[in-house]
Design a protein around this nucleic acid. Structure first.
Length: 271
DNA sequence: AAAAGCCCCTGGATGC
DNA sequence: TGCATCCAGGGGCTTT
């Protein structure tokens, strides 16, 4: 479910509320992708400083160290005023003086990991290889261009890999390539300078807009307050295999790249 | 260094 | 209604 906009909207929906909160207790459900990496007792008594985002990770800064949260494919965070029973798919619950932070994640591809610091081995393993943040100035066109130049893989897969630019998941990768008129199978290195510039712009525009509108409602995304997003723009291609293109009427193609499905318009998106 | 596969896990939709 | 099959928004890890 969560790509950059959804993760960012989640962050914005509870960062201010939880800042300054004291951790009272922590409860774990079934195992997530990795073990927490510390004793619960190490967290209790600490104060939450800030909540940041890096790629699709949320970084919850504490007095000592930080908690990394990843929502995986099916995770969502809730920040509730009162405590409630741990549901079947609640696998992390942190009771604080300001409210209760809860991770619900049916598939358990998500993670909640404590790290001593951002320089710790675990933090480096998870964050070290991440690419540029698309919504900051660090997302430089020249660097983007240079990065793509060295890649023989298909542009769609380079976007998805996250080591050049972060936060673009399967849905937004498909949508962004449609809006930029680029065939997803095109080798990254073969994109002209002008098309790279166009893609760069589209990525920023689409992600910015999705965040501003509260994330995508393509499925059932809710922020940490349980509110739906308003990114009502219907997908141009994602999930529309076999249907007519909204622009030219051609039948939208559906193919596999890596283990993921790619959707594209054979006429609007050129090699 | 980069690319390609594999795998983790559960639930919902579809088809017989 | 029951059961099998396929599919899903991610990404680290291992192998080429």
């Amino acid at each position: 479910m969560p790509e950059l906009p959804e993760v960012e909207v989640t962050r914005l929906s509870f960062a201010d509320k939880i800042a300054g909160a004291k951790i009272i207790s922590v409860q774990l459900g079934k195992p997530l992708r990795w073990p927490l990496g510390c004793c619960v007792a190490e967290l209790v008594g600490q104060t939450v400083q800030t909540v940041r985002r890096r790629g699709k990770y949320l970084l919850i800064d504490l007095d000592q160290g930080l908690i990394l949260v990843h929502l995986g494919m099916s995770g969502s965070l809730g920040f509730l005023l009162g405590r409630s029973a741990m549901g079947t798919h609640d696998h992390f619950e942190m009771v604080t003086s300001r409210g209760v932070l809860k991770l619900n994640d049916p598939r358990r591809f998500g993670a909640v990991v404590y790290a001593d610091s951002e320089q710790s081995a675990m933090a480096c393993k998870l964050l070290g290889g991440l690419g540029m943040e698309p919504l900051t100035d660090s997302f430089d066109v020249s660097k983007f261009q240079a990065g793509l130049k060295s890649r023989k893989a298909a542009i769609k897969q380079v976007l998805l890999a996250g080591d050049l630019v972060v936060g673009v998941g399967n849905i937004y990768a498909c949508e962004v390539l449609f809006l930029a008129g680029i065939r997803p199978t095109l080798r990254a290195a073969r994109l002209s300078r002008a098309r790279v510039a166009r893609l760069h712009t589209v990525i920023r525009e689409v992600l910015t807009r999705a965040v501003a509108l509260g994330g995508s409602t393509l499925r059932d995304f809710t922020n940490a307050n349980g509110e739906n997003g308003h990114f009502q723009v219907e997908a141009m291609v994602y999930g529309r295999g076999g249907l007519p293109c909204r622009v030219c009427g051609s039948i939208i193609n559906s193919i596999k790249q890596g283990q993921r499905t790619t959707f594209y318009c054979p006429k609007c998106q050129k090699h």
